[in-house]
């Protein structure tokens, strides 16, 4: 089984020379393809920072990060965007749908970023699978929180990425919505043979994953 993500001695610092905040301290881990892992730990331990680094949206202070065996540390913005487009789908805690785009347009955005055009049927099918067929042309403001997150997950999955990075995807949902959302996410990642790295505070969700990585004070424990 090949490795989808590799972190080797990765550190992340913020602040100036005299006032350095060490967010991550030389951490090492890898995620295999089709593996589902959860990252848990107390607030401020560095969980989300791992997702930020893995997505190429933040740059490691030192160390090496490989996505599908491609080193991403040191890449320029355009190249990082390309790696992200080809390999990664991100799900945020706050959904972050684009407010003036309808549900289907939000999903198509992900395909169009990859120069995949005229795939409206795929997007419709996916949203129908997510129980949103009747909401295709609704703006985010017309959707409930659970519906918005389902659109956000569909946006992350539509492009069939090799890795899904999810940052507390159920953090803004009630328990019923949360459970159905996780069912959806697990089923689809397994079905599409995708790796899933998920930050969560919810132990019940973490326990459903193949592996749990626990972070404390910027280190894996």
């Amino acid at each position: 089984m090949s490795e989808a993500i590799q972190f080797n001695n990765v550190s992340l610092n913020y602040g100036s020379k005299n006032d350095v905040v060490e967010v991550l301290k030389r951490i090492n881990f890898s995620v295999n393809s089709e593996e589902i892992i959860s990252i848990v730990g107390p607030s401020g331990s560095g969980k989300t920072s791992i997702i930020m680094l893995a997505s190429g949206l933040e740059t490691a202070t030192e160390g090496s990060i490989k996505i599908n065996n491609e080193e991403i540390v040191g890449l320029k913005e355009d190249k990082l965007s390309e790696v992200r487009r080809k390999n990664i789908g991100i799900v945020f805690q706050s959904f972050y749908l684009i407010p003036n785009l309808t549900a289907i347009e939000n999903v198509l955005l992900s395909l169009e970023a990859n120069q995949k055009y005229n795939q409206d049927d795929d997007a419709k099918a996916l949203l129908a699978d997510f129980g949103l067929y009747h909401r295709l042309n609704h703006l985010p403001s017309e959707l409930s929180g659970g519906e918005q997150q389902r659109v956000a997950i569909a946006r992350a999955l539509i492009n069939k990425p090799k890795i899904i990075l999810a940052d507390e995807p159920t953090g803004n949902l009630d328990s019923a919505n949360s459970a159905s959302m996780m069912d959806l996410l697990f089923n689809y990642t397994k079905k599409s043979k995708t790796s899933l790295v998920m930050v969560t505070h919810d132990n019940s969700i973490a326990e459903r994953c193949d592996r749990i990585i626990e972070i404390k004070d910027g280190q894996i424990v």
Partner: peptide
């Protein structure tokens, strides 16, 4: 701001 950040997270470049 948010929409632009989302587009960037999906893979659109600043350019």
């Amino acid at each position: 701001n948010t929409s632009i950040a989302v587009k960037k997270s999906i893979g659109f470049s600043s350019n």
